[in-house]
Design a protein around this nucleic acid. Structure first.
Lengths: 272, 272
DNA sequence: ATCATCATTCCATTAATTGGAATGCCTGAT
DNA sequence: ATCAGGCATTCCAATTAATGGAATGATGAT
């Protein structure tokens, strides 16, 4: 079983391919160690970390010592380094206090419970969406792998499409946004050309909600409606319901769109 | 409304009284900036941070730049610095992956739903308990202010008492643990002497669960049962239900203890 | 008892941090 | 349009801390 440590893969948005990075120094290296440390929920020994960062042992040792001193890291019973309570407290407290979350948490819970599916809130950041809040339903045997702070390409998610639909009004705008690089294909359904995307955005604009019919992951579909936290015209982000296709096909989600809007409306006024 | 920024108070376990700390340097200062940054959910400007840390502007600027470079901090629309998506992703992903959490998350959800009260999992760390997982019930008008990674004195919490009851077997042991410093009084009910505490631990040992009858906060009571994640004899931590006294007095909690144990037992076997 | 592995400490060299001061940039007032 | 004030950003020489190869403890397995 999970004895020692689990050096996982699959992470990171773009920048830091930790291992062989261009030799970071000083504080940057300490921060890189912190980020690497987060990848080992079971803890990691100094030598393992040394290998992962391929840096001399004393350097890593100092970095870890520094992290421990500030409470951002801790050592478990076996002497392995793990993320510290202080870091977790920091992150969760900050998260709980963020205005967008306090205003959406209850709505997301209601949605997750009502539909027994995962509810997300996410914002647009360039060509990707960033998940800012997430509520899982209760009993679910399967769980979404999404994580707060995690990302997905905007063009193949319901949230991305509904947010893009209000920004990319013309075919030219869509083409400019798509830019040189082709859109990543995630599934056979993914829309990978500016033309397809433009069509989809037109439709999204008309109906006022975005859908993702297994365009990001086979077997999962999604419906998203925009959320206006600041301006009444510019959405700050969008809320989505992600469902397993076999249990709740995209048609069922579309049929529920009014119910979703009701939940959002009622828990918005609740605070207003 | 929440225009600028909100420099809060009330935090930290012991060590870093940020503001006038003994002039940290190098990476330590960067980490201190990171911790301070977490206190401003609405973001903070460079000068504000400069004041908060009372350090020269360029230094803080470099620290923040460094944090941004690694994704641990970001800048919002107004140019204010906030905790970065990367930090949140890190913390939440790490949290989700921790063995103790994957094994308890579902049980806590069931407890929170069943009793419509907040369920916690916490471990003992010296004279305090550290909350490691938390699930709030749905509709609740009031919410516990506890945060994951947060702490409370062990002697006035149900979790602390049930865990201590298995470690401090004799009156002498209790006295040694209490040590010189008197136990902090949180409410009129708080047990502040070794004698009182020893009595309470005796009873806790007999009944196999710990209670906190408004000993930590007036109007809130709590019941905790130990959890054995590793060894079958030494508890790794404890799970508690925290309830508002007027809604569910301590007697009601005690009456529910078997139901609580059932939930824990069933979701333990579920994974075994 | 011996060996292997890992954590920790040492210290001269090296290279990065430091912070006072100057500059650039934006916003709002006149 | 112009100016003032507040803020972010950049400069640079002196200083100070980080660096890492090597030595030393600590720990546990054979």
């Amino acid at each position: 079983m999970a004895d020692g440590s689990t050096p996982p893969d699959s992470m990171n948005t773009a920048v830091g391919s930790d291992s062989e990075a261009g030799k970071l120094v000083g504080s940057d290296r300490v921060l890189a160690v912190l980020k690497e440390l987060a990848r080992y929920p079971d803890g990691v020994s100094l030598v393992e970390m040394t290998r992962a960062m391929n840096s001399p042992k004393p350097t890593i040792h100092r970095a870890l010592t520094s992290l421990c001193r500030s409470g951002l890291a801790d050592r478990d019973a076996r002497g392995h380094y793990v993320l510290g309570d202080e870091l977790l407290r920091m992150a969760f407290a900050h998260y709980d206090a963020r205005p967008e979350h306090v205003r959406l948490q209850s709505a997301l819970k209601q949605l997750a419970e009502k539909f027994q599916e995962t509810a997300h809130y996410a914002v647009l950041d360039g060509r990707e969406v960033v998940y800012r809040a997430k509520v899982d339903p209760h009993g679910g045997a399967v769980r979404m792998t999404s994580v707060i702070g995690g990302r997905n390409p905007a063009h193949c998610t319901a949230i991305g499409k509904v947010l893009l639909s209000r920004r990319l009004l013309t075919r030219e705008a869509v083409e400019a946004w798509v830019g040189g690089a082709a859109l990543q294909r995630r599934t056979p359904q993914t829309m990978c050309t500016a033309e397809e995307l433009h069509q989809a955005l037109e439709q999204t604009r008309c109906q006022g909600f975005g859908i993702d019919d297994q365009e990001n992951e086979v077997g999962v579909n999604c419906l998203a409606v925009p959320v206006f936290l600041k301006s009444p015209s510019e959405p700050t982000g969008a809320v989505s319901i992600s469902a397993l296709t076999y249990r709740k096909p995209i048609g069922a989600l579309i049929a529920s769109v009014d119910a979703i809007r009701d939940v959002l409306a009622s828990s918005a006024t609740e605070r207003a």
